[in-house]
Amino acid sequence: MNESETNSMDIDYVSNLARIELTVDEKEKFRGQLGDVLKYFQKLQKVDVEGVEPTAHAFPRYNVWDEDSPKEPYNIDQVMMNAPQSRNNQIVVPKVVED
């Protein structure tokens, strides 16, 4: 990937992907700042990582699991105590456009 591809971003696309509405001013400000950040990140593109395994965990382990024995679920008050809008013990959301 060349430099111009990795040091600019389509801020409309990405903010939509992240589902964050930005004001016009924010977009303008971020475009500049994130452009600088990406330029700074160019350092990464120069590292020789040929054959290097990625690190997902600092101290990897395997098979960390739990037996299948059920415990007590939340009561409905715990579930709904922070809900911005609810009805019939369910969370109300504005109409979902299509499935």
């Binding site: 024995s69 059920p70 679920p73 409905i76 579930v79 709904m80 013990n89 369910q90 969370i91």
Partner: peptide, 19 residues
């Protein structure tokens, strides 16, 4: 480890992880 189930009271099979 919240139980699985079908046809139960709405939102009665949750905890902090499910939510």
């Amino acid at each position: 480890r919240v139980p699985c189930g079908f046809g139960r009271e709405p939102n009665s099979l949750t905890d902090c992880v499910v939510l």
